[in-house]
Design a protein around this nucleic acid. Structure first.
Lengths: 335, 335
DNA sequence: TATTAAATCTAAAACGTTTTAGATAATTTC
DNA sequence: GAAATTATCTAAAACGTTTTAGATTTAATA
């Protein structure tokens, strides 16, 4: 495999000149052409390791998804991560950066070590962290000057870099929609109680109802694990006890799909008998019948924003960057 | 940031000894302990660039999805890629390898160059290629000894490394199922005509029907672009002309979802009035009502197999590896 | 033409590892 | 106790770049 040395020798110049010619530094135009020709002829491609060693840059960004082992399937089955990934990836490609992906568990005994290493081994220039099921942020101790950004951290410390999707606002929108529609008998299927984003949705939703003097009894609330199945069983549980229910807010679109399966099987009509609202707006929301009214968590956009914030740190040396994104209602046919 | 030199100095040994101590080579156990302690104390982490430069390895594998610009949304919206990704990623992590992802288009003017560079810049040790909408395999010219594996190449050249999912068999299964159920009036919504996998399904399906003297008129066949929408319009087009149709084979689960939307809206019952079979077995298949009978393309498993074949090249220096995977029927409620 | 300024090039250092061949020290063997 | 063996260590080279400071050549000025 040809190296810069070979190219230089072939072109009859020094290594330094060859390097400069290839990197657009000032050299005589005639020699530049000669070097470029030789590089081409020898199929020269710069060695990334060599470049990285001297520049200290890898031209790579790293996306880390941290999951809870208790909910292992969340990552594999919940394709909304795919949207984040595409958002980040496309931004990375626009910056001519490589994209590196890792999935870790909070329970991994080497989790802290993972971060320690990744912040120091120069394999990436910055890190985007998607923490599911918050445990703690001990790992931040290793970051020092290493660029990073966290999605929806549960502590909004002004010093850390983060993007916050205002899920409590998302919950608020749904509550407001229910109120406007005049629903009084309402059910809700929450996310897992240790899932921060789900907690925000829950609070936004419940509080707005409270303000309008609507209280949902505990027996009309169910804590799901975000899966279709738990949406199904949750809905059954609620409806058996509360046949009067007119509308159900589901913490995500999978749960909504499960809810709709149960409701349809029971011979009830959506939205006439029971209205359903989901959350996230993943592809499933468009696929099911009737098409699901849901809250668009703007997943791909969030991925892009995360990446851009990271690049502001990497390229412009900014710090303490925060960004807030409001989810929005997507009206379809289920309410 | 501490380097090996620092660790060595601190421990009072040479750089060589420090390196050997850290890499489990034979050194006196007492000095090893000393070196490890110092490394720890200084927060030492080996620099990847330096390592890669000398070893020629990056401990990284690269997954490249090649799409057609004409069908740009396929990648972003069709989350079955997510399953491939998870399959590859988890295998990579088990080998302690990093995972890089790229999405390219056949139309990218720099596509060839991309491969030329990636095969030579030492940023990865091998490449998995998922070509959608086959154009050609010119890029293989750059691979020489660079480890790679292709999913479903349209040319099954014994010299190249590939995994072949027998989609024609998948098509065959569905045809057989329809025949066993006694359906005579059958509709089919194909994938795009320039999509190789879709072509295989089509042929397997059509041929098996032919063998049983069933011919589907052109007006009961529709070429979709794999989206929900085209499933919807395709189904409408077919059913308006052929109200007698009893079953429809959809080229993927999105299309099946669209088909089901139209059918349900028309007041028809699935599967009583019309049976539907999808393809892929992505999450949507479980989410829609009734749950979709479909062909499991074993996406995550395929990702794992691809990665393992790549590692056989990287680690064991094997070559010309082929693997064949049979899709299988998943019976649910739509037939 | 001599002097100065600008353009062009290069030698050498540096980045942080791993590995090899050999030096030194410790241990075993007879 | 000397010779042979083994264990332990190190100096130096190598990997392939980029960058810096200065050397050389060329062009511009007076």
């Amino acid at each position: 495999m040809a190296t810069l040395k070979d190219v230089a020798k072939f072109a009859g110049v020094s290594i330094a000149t060859a390097s400069q010619a290839l990197n657009g530094k000032s050299v005589n135009e005639k020699t530049r052409q000669r070097v470029l020709e030789c590089a081409d002829m020898l199929h020269y491609v710069p060695n990334k390791g060599g470049q990285s060693l001297i520049t200290g840059k890898s031209n790579t960004i790293l996306l880390v998804i941290i999951n809870s082992a208790k909910h292992a399937n969340l990552i594999r089955e919940n394709t909304f991560f795919y949207s984040y990934i595409m958002g980040v990836l496309s931004e990375a490609q626009q910056h001519n950066y490589n994209f590196h992906l890792e999935v870790k568990n909070w329970e991994d005994p080497d989790l802290l070590d993972f971060f320690r290493v990744k912040c120091r081994d120069k394999s990436s220039d910055g890190m985007i962290i998607l923490p599911q099921y918050i445990k703690n942020y001990d790992f931040l101790q290793y970051f020092e000057d290493f660029p990073y950004v966290i999605l929806n951290p549960c502590l909004e410390d002004p010093k850390i870099n983060y993007v916050s999707v205002e899920h409590s606002y998302g919950g608020y929108i749904v509550a407001d929609l229910f109120i406007k529609k005049g629903y009084k008998n309402i059910g809700v299927i929450h996310g897992p109680d240790d899932h921060y984003d789900a907690e925000c949705r829950r609070n936004g939703f419940i509080n707005q109802l409270l303000k309008n003097n609507i209280i949902i009894p505990q027996s009309a609330q169910y804590y799901s694990d975000f899966t279709i199945k738990s949406g199904y069983t949750g809905t059954r549980k609620i409806l058996l006890k509360h046949p009067e229910i007119e509308a159900i807010f589901c913490c995500n679109d999978f749960v909504a799909a499960g809810a709709m399966q149960y409701i349809t099987e029971s011979g009830l009509k959506i939205p006439d008998d029971i209205a359903i609202v989901g959350y996230d707006n993943i592809d499933i929301a468009k696929a099911i019948t009737p098409a699901l009214t849901t809250i668009d968590a703007r997943l791909e956009e969030v991925g892009g924003v995360l990446a851009r914030i990271l690049f502001r740190q990497i390229l412009d040396n900014e710090s303490s960057i925060h960004s807030f994104i409001r989810p929005e209602l997507i009206k379809r046919k289920s309410i």
